[in-house]
């Protein structure tokens, strides 16, 4: 750990500071968007969007190396694919509910496969590993700036539209009776998640973005009293997991993204286990108390005939 702190302060190792900054900036997106994704139960949709991004990365690499679109950065293709897949998924989800699962999985698989095909046909050697699993040590100043801008936009949107986000996640039909355009809210969430996934994949990679969008939010959800509390808690947890993961990966020479995800996953499982144990204990106590007082109270009498 002290080695990591020394490396952070070493003027010759700017990439360590960039990596930590990227982890902390990502935490806001993981925390705020992750909470929305979790309570709206659209983690599967976010997973499909993030995996489809590989298709865009592959296409951009292919076009730029083949000199069809020289200098086209992979991030441009990634954002295009993310937005197109998000729009497709949103359209299917709103218009053809019964085919939703199939279409989402198809987009997931086709996006990744296109990426593999484009990369295979791109001259020269390209290692897909850094896209799939992230390479935080390659984070650039431009990446940090983009992350900071998206953080600001997401925080502003979450503050402005908090009632609509909360209501459409809790009870979409009721929100519609109050005049909220829940379809636009849904579309907006998916579009922002799509762009975020692209920026976040530099940190943990395409495959593991979805883990960081769900695990810290899920862990925070055990203790949070409301959606805002869940967002704050998930952001704090993400920041802690990122810093810890980076330090551990530096000390033990491990891939950073995977280390962060393992720490987040272990924390979630530990929190879920602790909650389960606490509930079982409370139930046992309640059953003993009710036996002592002579049986359960008013159990309700159900629907009338």
């Amino acid at each position: 750990m002290s080695g990591f702190l020394a490396a952070l302060l070493d003027p010759g190792l700017p990439f360590i500071r960039n990596a930590l900054a990227a982890g902390l900036l990502s935490s806001i997106l993981f925390g705020v968007l992750g909470s929305v994704v979790t309570v709206k139960r659209i983690a599967g949709l976010a997973g499909a969007v993030s995996h489809a991004v590989l298709g865009g990365v592959g296409l951009a690499l292919f076009l730029s190396v083949k000199r069809i679109a020289p200098g086209l950065p992979p991030i441009a293709g990634a954002i295009a694919f993310a937005l197109v897949s998000a729009l497709l998924i949103a359209w299917v989800s709103l218009k053809a509910k019964q085919r939703e699962d199939t279409v989402i999985n198809a987009i997931w698989a086709i996006g990744m496969s296109l990426g593999v095909l484009f990369i295979a046909k791109t001259p020269g050697y390209i290692d897909p590993m850094s896209y799939l699993f992230g390479n935080i040590l390659l984070v650039s100043g431009r990446d940090l700036l983009l992350l900071a801008i998206l953080d600001a936009l997401v925080l502003a949107a979450a503050w402005l539209f908090y009632p609509q986000l909360e209501a459409s996640a809790f009870d979409e039909e009721f929100a519609r009776t109050r005049g909220a355009r829940t379809d636009l809210v849904f579309l907006g969430i998916l579009a922002v998640v799509a762009v975020a996934v692209v920026l976040l994949q530099t940190f943990v990679g395409i495959v593991m973005v979805i883990a960081m969008l769900t695990l810290p939010a899920g862990t925070a959800g055990f203790r949070a009293r409301n959606l805002a509390g869940m967002m704050v808690g998930a952001t704090a947890l993400s920041a802690a997991f990122s810093a810890l993961g980076l330090a551990a990966s530096w000390s033990a020479d491990l891939p950073a993204g995977a280390t962060v995800v393992v720490i987040a996953g272990a924390s979630f499982l530990a929190a879920a286990g602790a909650r389960g144990a606490a509930r079982a204990l409370a139930r046992g106590r309640g059953a003993r108390a009710s036996r002592a007082s002579g049986g359960p109270g008013d159990e309700g009498r159900g629907a009338k005939p």
């Binding site: 009632p163 909360e166 039909e173 109050r178 909220a180 409301n226």
Partner: peptide
């Protein structure tokens, strides 16, 4: 409604559910 089908892990208090009745369209905080 007869019931709300929602995620039981959704953290929300009674007061916040009731406040939802004040939702006005797609814009505006409480």
């Amino acid at each position: 409604p007869q019931a709300v089908v929602y995620d039981p892990a959704f953290p929300i208090s009674v007061a916040e559910v009731v406040l939802m009745g004040r939702l006005r369209g797609s814009f505006g905080r409480y």
